[in-house]
Design a binder for these strands. Sequence first.
DNA 1: CTGTTAGCGCATTCAG
DNA 2: CTGAATGCGCTAACAG
Lengths: 345, 345
Amino acid sequence: VPISIRDVAASAGVSLGTVSKVLNERAGAQIAPETRERVRRAARELGYHPSAVARALVRKQMDTLGLVLPPGSTSPIRAPFFSALVDGIFQAAAERRQNITVFTGHRWRNAQESLPYYRDGRCDGLLLCFQLPESDIVTALLDARIPMVTLNDIHDDPRATTVDVDNIAGAREMTAYLLSIGHRNIGLICGLASLNFVAPRIEGYKRALSAAGVPFDPALVAAGESTRRSIAEQVDTLLTLPIARRPTALFCLSDGLATDTFIALAARGVRIPQEISVAGFNDDGSASWHEPPLTTMRQPFVDLGERAIDLLIERIKDPSLPAVVEFLKTELVVRGSTAPPAVTR
Amino acid sequence: VPISIRDVAASAGVSLGTVSKVLNERAGAQIAPETRERVRRAARELGYHPSAVARALVRKQMDTLGLVLPPGSTSPIRAPFFSALVDGIFQAAAERRQNITVFTGHRWRNAQESLPYYRDGRCDGLLLCFQLPESDIVTALLDARIPMVTLNDIHDDPRATTVDVDNIAGAREMTAYLLSIGHRNIGLICGLASLNFVAPRIEGYKRALSAAGVPFDPALVAAGESTRRSIAEQVDTLLTLPIARRPTALFCLSDGLATDTFIALAARGVRIPQEISVAGFNDDGSASWHEPPLTTMRQPFVDLGERAIDLLIERIKDPSLPAVVEFLKTELVVRGSTAPPAVTR
DNA sequence: CTGTTAGCGCATTCAG
DNA sequence: CTGAATGCGCTAACAG
């Protein structure tokens, strides 16, 4: 038997409006302490809980944020990176008393189909986490003036508000670290090159090289797909380079790529870090499960979630706010998978 | 400018009720094809999308399911097991056109506090995924008659509908497999013994032993906490047993425990599977990242999600349905981490 | 300080 | 076959 605000009013002997005022503790609502207490007691005794739906209908606000994860059958949420990001978002949302509803995207074929579901009032705004540029959806959402923030996905549309880590700086720092311990030939395992994070991280790599006066060798950049098989091929490509150009360290552009690189190296009997150093990027949790544990750049997942949600909430309150793009800093985490190159070369 | 059903009605020159009938394609609603077309066109041209909130208010149904994840600051969703389970749930929900809103539980201190949030009409029912017995919450939810299904958490309250894998059978099969390749001393790494899955899996282990006529040695059962440090201690306890009782295989009661067991073994220079076999349980994704890849029991994550959601939807439609407890089968996945014991003992 | 009124956007009777 | 009327449960003016 659902119990409504009417029942509380009747039971407390006051009007419906009074109950609403008491329970919402509206600022500037003067209520006699005695009445207030009577209402509260009635509500408690009846086990009354306001309907979020009815409230949302009149306030036009659900206090719910939609989280849109990449389409495709690859089950992105099972990847440690997305788990970490999603967890950061959940934590931040809980602190701000926002609910999160998740759109897996599996069922939406295109922008036309998906839009209605995003704008049916179920959520007040959207958090978008894609790994590939999804321009059509983003543009459609922007056109529809749905409040949204893009996470880890710099978009070229100037209307998009985005928060991301500074991938260029992060990759530069990692490369600089590898250079600092003596590596000169640093191979890059990129996986699928069209993923959002690849280009800026390659850029950071180049800048560090250039700052150190080490020439950039395009042959040291291996790309293909992000599958285990393809990663193995990319590793092979680098390992079979002539000895003078062969890398002594492999900078995998994500921890996921590092995992498959570890597997490929183990299969070939190459020891880490004695024969080759391996570094990752993200510190998404998988990094510490490796043997040896992975040197990587940590993304501040909780901070990312917090900034994204705060920016989104601001824009829900005031949709006229200008778009901003925020970059958060990464942190170098040195573990056991990197070491100076063997002297005998 | 939010556009409502009224605007469509006006634009199509029909009444509001007619628009509703056309757009919902209600069975038994006779509408002139010509009117129908006119309404559809008007809706399309105006870019009309019904408000899920208003609809929910009158239909008393949001087509949204709440997913409650375990409390605690341990960020359960970052664990591969929960990622896999949650992913299975998302997939199943998308197919059934149900939205999922996630309650991380971080902020709820107890049943009294959390209840209001679960019953405010935001979601029609609840999917509960706990790793420890959370009797007070479950009981409170059951008392409140909120439709719910418990996942991987057999509860003693007979009113609770649950879906889980058959842990006893799974552990029995894994143990039988280890026995079949020649192991007689099979150590158990249990981690935190109060976790829901531990007791039934130990039971399965015992049954397999008993069926094979191998006596049960309590010293082979190591438990403590599920932290990396504690797992290392549990491994040490088993490895330092007198040679005659020392295990030649370690059955870790979850893949997460197996990960830490791998790390502990590597630190001690013990080779897998040459010196000791290691098996896990779950096949949650981390299993295939290991070197060597982990032999484990696969949980059918998508099936679990599907059954849980179907049972929940049934119970939302008809709350008087009796509680049921369903067990799904696991599947043995043999990889490289297990082998017959070394003959020289 | 409190009660009354008027919708929020929609689904659903019930008449015509 | 279609229109008008009613109310879901609540908040937000506006009167008293």
